[in-house]
């Protein structure tokens, strides 16, 4: 399979023509690109999957702070609450939110994580994928299919925009991670390719304009909590898409809108910490404290 799939439209038509799923096309393409067997591609994906699970596992039992000492104990707090009170949205919600915090806090304390697509957005895909898989007893093979689907979505978006806060704001990091997670979830729950592609559009449409304005320039505030919110966001997108609710704007056009919005976004709001949350009164105080302490 030498053909490059660079848009969601091409993806749908190729899946239709070859009667294949997204993950099948992309594992073939990757095998060709890297000149290795498909099984080898899948075992590399499994490595990422295993590292995601390990990060969750370690993160759940740590409350160690980050270098800046600003963050690191939210996962512990959340688990404490869940011990005393069942969360409003049930067990799956509980797992996704706790796993997301566990992963992103591992990231900020220099633990081992999987950039997915970036380190700052590393908790969205794993929290949803692992929580659902545990709850619904999803096989490892299916989990790998879902993670390849997530990767495929990210790589199609990447054809049009670099997945970096400095280029297109957090739309391109946590936003794209949520789209990947939504699509992976549709794959796991047995949805169609079309539903998967609509889930991507629905997730992206509802984060357009998301800026990157980290306090003190660190991947901490607002990144930590944003991962939790966007993990849940991706579940909403998947549920709607599985109900055959379609994005009235086709997915490729939504991606174009994301690119344009990224271009129009002020450089002050793209990872440079010159505006937004990063320049609030309290953020400036935090910045002073952090710079003096490390």
């Amino acid at each position: 399979m030498k053909k490059n799939i660079s848009t969601f439209n091409e993806l749908l038509s190729t899946c239709g023509q070859q009667n294949k799923r997204t993950y099948e096309l992309f594992q073939e393409k990757e095998a060709f690109l890297l000149d290795i067997e498909i099984e080898k591609v899948r075992s590399k994906v499994k490595k990422s999957l295993d590292a995601m699970k390990e990060a969750i596992h370690i993160g759940l039992s740590s409350n160690e702070k980050s270098i800046s000492k600003q963050c690191g104990d939210d996962c512990e707090k959340l688990q404490k609450r869940y011990k005393a009170n069942e969360p409003l949205f049930g067990k799956l919600f509980k797992k996704i939110t706790a796993y997301a915090l566990a992963t992103i806090e591992e990231n900020l304390r220099m633990g081992k994580i999987v950039a997915c697509p970036t380190a700052g957005s590393c908790a969205i895909v794993p929290s949803v994928l692992v929580a659902i898989s545990e709850e619904l007893n999803i096989s490892e093979d299916e989990q790998i299919n879902a993670l390849i689907t997530a990767g495929a979505i990210g790589s199609i978006v990447q054809n049009k925009v670099a997945l970096a806060g400095a280029i297109a704001g957090c739309q391109a990091e946590c936003g794209v991670a949520a789209a990947m997670s939504a699509g992976a979830l549709v794959q796991i729950l047995g949805g169609s390719e079309k539903q998967m592609v609509h889930a991507v559009a629905l997730a992206l449409k509802n984060i357009l304009g998301l800026t990157c304005d980290p306090v003190a320039g660190l991947v901490e505030i607002p990144c930590v909590k944003r991962n939790v919110f966007l993990a849940i966001h991706s579940v909403t997108a998947a549920e709607l898409a599985l109900a055959d609710i379609e994005s009235k704007i086709p997915t490729d056009e939504v991606v174009d809108a994301l690119c344009q919005t990224g271009q129009l976004m002020s450089p002050m709001l793209k990872e440079s910490s010159q505006a937004g949350l990063a320049k609030t009164k309290t953020a400036l105080k935090i910045e002073q404290r952090v710079l003096n302490n490390i």
Partner: peptide, 24 residues
């Protein structure tokens, strides 16, 4: 255009917290 790899998106496995500032 260079074809993007799946592993540009679902890796690297790295210590955090930042792709550009730590892994880079």
């Amino acid at each position: 255009m260079k074809q993007s790899s799946l592993f540009d998106i679902i890796s690297p496995i790295m210590v955090g917290p930042s792709s550009s500032h730590t892994a880079g």
